[in-house]
């Protein structure tokens, strides 16, 4: 009977790993269960200090140069075997791109249910989770009646909280021998200076109001000035003005930044689904009747070609 948190890394521990640890610590405290963690990667090394203060008893560290990059073939059996060895009854993972793949695969191997991409979880005579469905248009509260009970947590929605300085013991584990069927040929990083949408603290998005692909730089300059990820509405993506990886909405990325700035976006329901959990929403649109003004905190009714360049300069000044 214990809680196991899956610590995600991409070279270094990801913020989502500490968010999962925060959620797992609360579950462990409420349930009285012991909390352990598993790290799979090249080397935990001096990052171990980041794992203090969550009440983690032991970190099971599988460190090997072959484990630096995520691999279903290598990671899934490690987690499954450790869950069985420890008799873990609660498993908390991250709902990042690779975290979702790991959690789904482990759940299948264990033959248990999984609440994927929860925005909160808690202990109340068992594991409960808050899970957005229909891309967040509806929120579902669920009870997990399976053992182990498994939840993956959406990145960027849990504030990391530590309690004290107690460091976990690090238990080195041998990498089990597995045959790697799938081969990683190449891992390309996005161009430097670009900020990923789902992990961004600020997102600035362009909608149909920009008029054409040649005008996107007006909004992109604002994103750059704000240190923001650059998003787009479905209309902009479907028109072929920008790559689909920028799309925010029900069939694109779901984002929860501190600030979301919608430029020339009308606020269709499927777009709202992708950004409605943002902490502060700013809307710039020339149509005062646009739906986006109904869900914004601050709105500017105006021409984005006038407002965005002014705002870009003002932000640069404000940030010094």
């Amino acid at each position: 009977m214990s809680v196991l948190v899956l610590l995600e890394q991409r070279g270094v521990l990801k913020p989502s790993a500490l968010e999962a640890a925060t959620a797992a610590a609360a579950i462990a405290q409420a349930s009285g269960l012991e909390l352990n963690a598993v790290y799979i990667g090249q080397s935990l090394a001096d990052q171990a200090s980041e794992l203090a203060g969550f009440g983690i008893k032991s970190v099971y560290a599988y460190e090997h140069s072959d484990l630096g990059h995520y691999s279903n073939d290598a990671y899934v059996p490690i987690v499954r075997d450790l869950v069985e060895e420890l008799g873990a009854t609660v498993i908390i993972g991250s709902a990042s791109a690779l975290g979702k793949e790991l959690c789904a695969s482990v759940a299948a191997r264990l033959g248990v249910e999984l609440v994927q991409d929860a925005i909160a979880c808690r202990w109340e005579n068992g594991l409960h989770a808050t899970k957005p469905v229909y891309a967040g248009k509806v929120v579902s509260e669920v009870a997990v009646n399976d053992s182990p009970a498994m939840v993956s947590l959406r990145p960027n929605v849990t504030a990391v909280a530590r309690n004290g300085e107690d460091a976990p013991e690090i238990l080195q584990r041998e990498m089990p021998s597995v045959s790697l069927r799938t081969v990683l040929k190449e891992a390309a990083e996005a161009a430097t200076g670009t900020v990923d949408l789902t992990e961004a603290k600020i997102v600035v998005s362009a909608g149909r109001g920009v008029g054409g692909p040649e005008h996107l730089p007006v909004v992109e300059a604002l994103a750059t000035a704000m240190g923001a990820a650059f998003g787009a509405s479905r209309a902009v993506v479907d028109a072929g003005w920008i790559h689909h990886s920028h799309q925010v909405g029900q069939t694109g990325k779901v984002v929860s930044p501190d600030v979301y700035v919608a430029c020339g976006i009308s606020g269709a329901i499927q777009h709202q689904a992708g950004m409605r959990t943002s902490r502060v929403i700013v809307a710039i649109n020339k149509d005062p009747q646009a739906n986006i003004f109904k869900i914004c905190d601050y709105g500017i009714v105006g021409d984005l070609f006038e407002i965005c360049p002014l705002l870009t300069e003002a932000v640069k000044l404000a940030k010094g």
């Binding site: 248990v112 249910e113 609440v115 409960h128 957005p132 469905v133 967040g136 248009k137 509806v138 929120v139 579902s140 509260e141 669920v142 009870a143 997990v144 009646n145 399976d146 409605r276 959990t277 929403i281 005062p288 003004f293 109904k294 869900i295 914004c296 905190d297 601050y298 709105g299 500017i300 009714v301």
Partner: peptide
């Protein structure tokens, strides 16, 4: 049969300032 049960469904409510500058 599912071993996850829905205990409640609701529409997300988030108060927005709706402040036009």
């Amino acid at each position: 049969a599912a071993k996850v049960t829905v205990t409640q469904m609701s529409l997300p409510r988030q108060e927005r300032l709706n402040k036009l500058l």
